[in-house]
């Protein structure tokens, strides 16, 4: 019956022109990556090292255990690769700007390990808000970090000392 009623109306419609910019018609703005950094733009926020969520280690022992900035970059990159391909948690990362995450996670690790960086990312609460992360997901993430550190030859006790800095952030990371 509905079909009978609407069929004449549908048939009376004219086909739209081929050259209509539908994005423009609906007000869709394309987000473009920064030509220099390759990152997507983010909402403005106040940058501060306090956003890293932990105080850095004193001295340069931990930075040395992690192989300095080069070692930390290897670990951060490997950590990102593992997370984006991990079937348990990759869906959480899928909507993230991988380029930006790669940079900010390196900065956070480097800052906390006192290897001479500042952290320019967002704080832990706002950066993890609404991701729906469960405790098991956090464990998967920890395992990936452990693997990245292990592959870079970080001694286990030093791995745990670093994890001790990150573990108290769990309340900001776990959603449910």
């Amino acid at each position: 019956m509905f079909l009978a009623a609407f069929l004449p109306i549908m048939l009376m419609q004219q086909a739209p022109a081929d050259d209509i910019d539908w994005d423009k018609e609906f007000g869709v703005e394309e987000v473009e990556r920064d030509p220099v950094t390759g990152e997507l733009p983010v909402e403005p926020y106040v940058q501060a090292n306090a956003n890293a969520g932990a105080t850095p280690f004193a001295g340069d022992t931990m930075a040395a255990r992690f192989g300095g900035q080069n070692g930390i970059r290897q670990i951060a990159n490997r950590f990102v690769d593992l997370n984006f391909s991990d079937p348990r948690i990759r869906t959480i990362f899928a909507a993230h700007d991988e380029v930006r995450f790669r940079r900010t996670i390196f900065e956070q690790f480097c800052y906390i390990l006192n290897a001479g960086c500042n952290y320019s990312g967002r704080d832990m609460e706002s950066s993890h808000s609404g991701l729906g992360t469960r405790k098991a997901d956090l464990n998967a993430l920890v395992e990936n970090l452990q693997q990245a550190m292990r592959e870079e030859g970080v001694p286990f006790a030093a791995q745990n000392r670093f994890l001790a800095k990150l573990a108290p952030m769990s309340a900001d990371v776990i959603d449910r």
Binding site: P87, A94, A140
Partner: peptide
């Protein structure tokens, strides 16, 4: 987001809770 990349549908299934203590 999950549907945008390869294996997305499989990943959607992964939203089911899994056991994963350290």
């Amino acid at each position: 987001a999950a549907e945008e990349f390869e294996g997305g549908e499989e990943a959607v299934a992964r939203f089911v809770d899994y056991n994963g203590k350290l």
